[in-house]
Design a protein around this nucleic acid. Structure first.
Lengths: 77, 77
DNA sequence: ATGTGACTCTAAGTCCGTC
DNA sequence: GGACGGACTTAGAGTCACA
């Protein structure tokens, strides 16, 4: 569940930032296909991975987590 | 670096909550020794682990991450 | 530009125990 | 009550070829 939500949030943030998976991957020193895995909810990132991606998404890591919290609550309704 | 900071934050939060490593572990469905590893900065948790521990620490996951962000900035001085 | 399968390798996380 | 170690299992990290 958490992975799915995180993946959706990540995808939304990335698209809102107007950046491709590839650019995000390059900026974060991650692999393009790994970003794909995350967005599809097939991986649960460590907080280290979260901190790597945050700058490119122009969000603080805590802001990203806060969005995930909100979505988790929404889906609980 | 991130692990060290996270470990410090975790330990502080836990002690402020007045809970032992063991209680935190039981409540979070994690292992007692793993909490110890985290507090000593020897492991980087996944966000799933973060979400598991947060309720017992009486903080939102995003709040915990926010504290980590602050500490990271302080240490950067 | 992205999804996906098929990996390998490393780290997350458990369970046993002692000090 | 917590540090620490060994041995372990599982899952994330990280990569590649191809559709």
């Amino acid at each position: 569940m958490l992975e799915k939500i995180f993946g959706q949030v990540l995808k939304n943030l990335r698209e809102n930032t107007g950046v491709t998976q590839e650019i995000l991957a390059l900026n974060s020193e991650l692999d393009r296909t790994y970003i794909s895995l995350l967005e599809r909810g097939l991986r649960t990132p460590t907080i280290a991975t979260l901190f790597k991606m945050a700058p490119t998404l122009k969000k603080m890591p805590s802001e990203i987590i806060a969005i995930v919290e909100q979505k988790l609550n929404e889906d609980r309704v």
